[in-house]
Nucleic acid binder design. Structure first.
Length: 558
RNA sequence: GCGCCAGUAGCUCAGGGGAAAGAGCAACGGCCUUCUAAGCCGUGGGUCAGGGGUUCGAAUCCCUUCUGGCGCGCCA
C-alpha cells in the first residue's frame, strides 16, 4: 500500500514539474504513513510540507497542485488535502477485501512478514549463573529473550537460543562451600556457612540429597579442591534442573548452553589475552593482567587475570572470548539480552572485541531496566545470596505463565518495571492479557455457534462475497491488517512490547464492535453473515498469531 | 564526581518530528430473554518535570537545570 501511494505521488510531482506548476523535486524520499487517526485516511503524505520552503508557496497550495496531478488507480478511492498540507488517501473497499482474502490464503505467512530470509540469528538471554532459583528479575530477561527469539523465528530467521553461564568464578566456589557446610551439618558434624555464603533453604535440600545418595563419603575427601569441585558440580546440576523447570513452565527453551570453564579449558581465553598483548593493549601491575583502558576509550584499565597464584581470569575475559566465538560461528546477528547493571561491562567487552579486529556491528544489545518488587507498598530488597527474593516459580504459581509473560512484555524494555505483587494477584482477572484472550474466546464461541447452525465458510477464500461489510467492519479489518507491519517494526527495532500494545488495541476495537446488537455476526441475512464470519475468522487468526509470538495462549473458552 | 536509563492523567505506562495528547487501573453513572458481562456505553481527570534552542511544525531532536533508578569491584 505504501509503495503504491509513494509511486503515484512521485508520478504526480513529476507531471507537475513537467508542466511548470512545481519548481523543485523533493530532496528526500517521499514519505507516506498510516495516520494515527483513521479520519485522516489510510495513508497520508507530508510531501507538500517538506517541499514548501523551496517552492516558496503555502503547503496547502502545493498539496492542491499535487492532488490535481494525481492519477488514482482503482484501489485508491480518493485523495484529499487536509490539515497543514497533508495529502490523505483512502483505499477502496475492494482493496481491503483483497487483503482479507490474501490473509485467508496465506495464513501464518501473511501475519508474519518473511523478512529474515534464513539469516542466522543468535540470541543469548537469561544467562543466570546457577547459584539459586530464578528470581522475578530474571523473568524479564527470560521472557524478553524468548519472545525476541519467537519473533525472529516467525519472520524467517534461523534462530539459536543460547544460555551462557559462569561456573568458574568465586561465586560458584562460594556456592560449593555453602553446600559442603550444609552437608556436614546434615551429617551432624561441626560446620558453619562461610561468611557471605548462600543461605537459601535450597542449599540444605541439595545437601540432604547428597547425604541420601552418597552417605558420608564426601565428608573426608582429602584433596580440598577436588572436594569443593564435587559440591560445586552437584549444586550446579541441581540448580540447573530447577532453572530448566521454571523455563519450561514459561514455555522457554534453549538450544545451546555455553559455559565459562569450557572456554577457559579450550584455550580461547588465553588466545584473547595473547591477541590483546600483541596489539599492545595489555599491561601488568599489582600482580594482575589488565586491559588498557586509555587506547580503547574506556574510563580506566580493566582486570583480565587476577593476581595471586591461581592466575584465574575474571568473568570479563571469557566473556570476550565467548563473543568472538559467537561471531566465528557465522551468525549474521548476535543479540545480547541483559540488565542495565551490566552495561559498563558490555562496553568493555565490545571495546576489546573491536580492538581485536572483529565486526561489532553484528552484535546488538537489548538492555532492560530493573524490575522492582513492591509488597504492601514497600520495596522488597532482593538478594540471591541472602535468599530474600520472590522466585519466578512463586510468581508463576500465583498468576500463571500467560500473565507473567504478558506482564513482562507489556512495557518498553528500557523502562523500569514496577511489579506490585499485591496488585498482580488482586488484579489478575482484570489483567490486559485476559482482555486480549477474551476476544479470541468470544470469536471461537461464534464459530461454535455457527457450526451448531450448520453455517460454514467455503474453503475457497474468493467464494465469499465481502461487499456486505460495513464501513465499521472495514475499519476493524484495517486495524487487523496492520499486524504484519507491527511485527516487522517490532523485529527490526527489537521491541517486543509493540505487539501486546497493538493486540490490546485490536481486542478493544473488536469488543466494541461485538457489543453492538446490530453487529451480530450470525443472523438471518445469509450473505451478511458469511461476510462477517469471514472477517471474524481472520480476526481470530490474527489474534492467535499475535499471542503465539508472545508465547501466550489463545484459549477457545474462558 | 563520571556514565547509562527514565520523568506524560490519582496509579502503572504507550506514543519518540506531523493533524484535537492516548490506554489500562482507580472514581462516578448506566447496559445482559438473542453468537461468552473477564465485555460495552457515558462522565470527570493533563503546565507531556522546569527553562532555553532548532523547525513550516516539538511530548518527540539539541543544550541546560532539577528529580528518581542503575552502574563506575581482582563480584557476575
Amino acid at each position: 500500500m505504501r509503495d503504491l501511494i509513494v509511486s503515484i505521488l512521485s508520478a504526480a510531482i513529476e507531471r507537475a514539474r513537467a508542466s511548470g506548476q512545481l519548481a523543485t523535486a523533493p530532496n528526500a524520499p517521499i514519505s507516506a504513513e498510516t495516520p494515527k487517526d483513521p479520519a485522516h485516511g489510510d495513508m497520508a503524505s507530508n510531501v507538500a510540507l517538506t517541499i514548501a520552503k523551496g517552492e516558496k508557496k503555502p503547503p496547502r497550495a502545493i498539496a492542491e497542485i499535487i492532488r490535481a496531478n494525481l492519477e488514482l488507480p482503482g484501489d485508491v478511492a480518493e485523495a484529499n488535502v487536509a490539515g497543514a498540507g497533508f495529502i490523505n488517501f483512502r483505499m477502496a473497499p475492494a482493496f481491503w477485501h483483497g487483503e482479507l482474502r490474501r490473509a485467508a490464503r496465506e495464513g501464518d505467512r501473511f501475519w508474519r512478514p518473511q523478512i529474515g530470509g534464513g539469516r542466522k540469528v543468535q540470541i543469548e538471554f537469561l544467562s543466570a549463573n546457577p547459584t539459586g532459583p530464578l528470581t522475578v528479575g530474571h523473568g524479564r530477561n527470560a521472557v524478553l529473550g524468548d519472545t525476541l527469539a519467537r519473533m525472529h523465528e516467525a519472520s524467517g530467521f534461523a534462530v539459536t537460543r543460547e544460555y551462557y553461564f559462569n561456573n568458574g568464578g568465586r561465586q560458584m566456589k562460594l556456592l560449593g562451600e555453602s553446600v559442603r557446610a550444609r552437608y556436614l551439618e546434615a551429617l551432624g558434624r561441626p560446620a558453619s556457612l562461610p561468611e557471605d555464603g548462600y543461605q537459601g533453604e535450597y542449599i540444605r535440600e541439595i545437601a540432604r540429597d547428597l547425604v541420601a545418595h552418597r552417605g558420608d563419603t564426601l565428608a573426608d575427601v582429602s584433596d580440598e579442591s577436588k572436594a569443593l569441585e564435587i559440591f560445586r558440580a552437584a549444586a550446579e546440576e541441581a540448580i540447573f534442573a530447577d532453572i530448566r523447570n521454571t523455563c519450561r513452565s514459561l514455555h522457554i527453551r534453549f538450544d545451546v548452553f555455553t559455559n565459562e570453564l569450557d572456554l577457559i579449558r579450550g584455550g580461547q581465553v588465553d588466545s584473547v589475552i595473547e591477541g590483546l598483548r600483541t596489539r599492545g593493549l595489555i599491561t601488568e601491575h599489582e600482580g594482575a593482567v589488565w586491559l588498557r583502558g586509555e587506547p580503547l576509550g574506556l574510563p580506566k584499565d580493566l582486570v583480565l587475570v587476577r593476581s595471586g597464584p591461581s592466575r584465574e581470569p575474571t568473568y570479563r575475559t571469557p566473556d570476550i572470548a565467548y563473543h568472538i566465538e559467537k561471531l566465528g560461528r557465522g551468525f549474521d546477528l548476535v543479540i545480547d539480552v541483559f540488565g542495565a547493571d551490566h552495561i559498563a561491562e558490555h562496553q568493555g567487552v565490545m571495546a576489546a572485541i573491536r580492538a581485536l579486529g572483529y565486526d561489532v556491528a553484528r552484535i546488538r544489545a537489548i538492555i532492560y531496566q530493573f524490575v522492582t518488587l513492591t509488597r504492601g507498598g514497600e520495596k522488597v530488597k532482593m538478594s540471591t545470596r541472602k535468599a530474600t527474593y520472590i522466585t519466578l516459580d512463586d510468581l508463576i504459581d500465583e498468576v500463571g505463565p500467560d500473565v507473567v509473560r504478558f506482564f513482562f512484555l507489556f512495557r518498553k524494555h528500557d523502562s523500569h518495571l514496577d511489579f506490585d505483587l499485591d496488585l498482580a494477584k488482586r488484579q489478575a482477572p482484570e489483567n490486559p492479557v485476559f482482555y486480549v484472550q477474551y476476544a479470541h474466546a468470544r470469536l471461537a464461541s461464534v464459530f461454535r455457534e455457527a457450526e451448531k447452525k450448520g453455517i460454514g465458510l467455503p474453503a475457497d477464500p474468493s467464494a465469499t462475497d465481502l461487499a456486505p461489510l460495513s464501513e465499521e467492519e472495514l475499519a476493524l479489518a484495517r486495524k487487523l491488517l496492520w499486524l504484519p507491519e507491527i511485527v516487522r517494526g517490532a523485529v527490526e527495532a527489537l521491541e517486543p512490547h509493540r505487539i501486546p500494545f497493538y493486540l490490546l488495541e485490536l481486542a478493544g476495537d473488536f469488543h466494541r464492535y461485538y457489543n453492538k446488537p446490530s453487529n451480530r455476526i450470525i443472523s438471518e441475512q445469509r450473505g451478511l453473515s458469511m461476510a462477517r464470519l469471514f472477517l471474524a475468522r481472520r480476526l481470530m487468526e490474527g489474534v492467535a498469531s499475535g499471542l503465539e509470538l508472545l508465547g501466550v495462549g489463545a484459549p477457545d473458552r474462558m
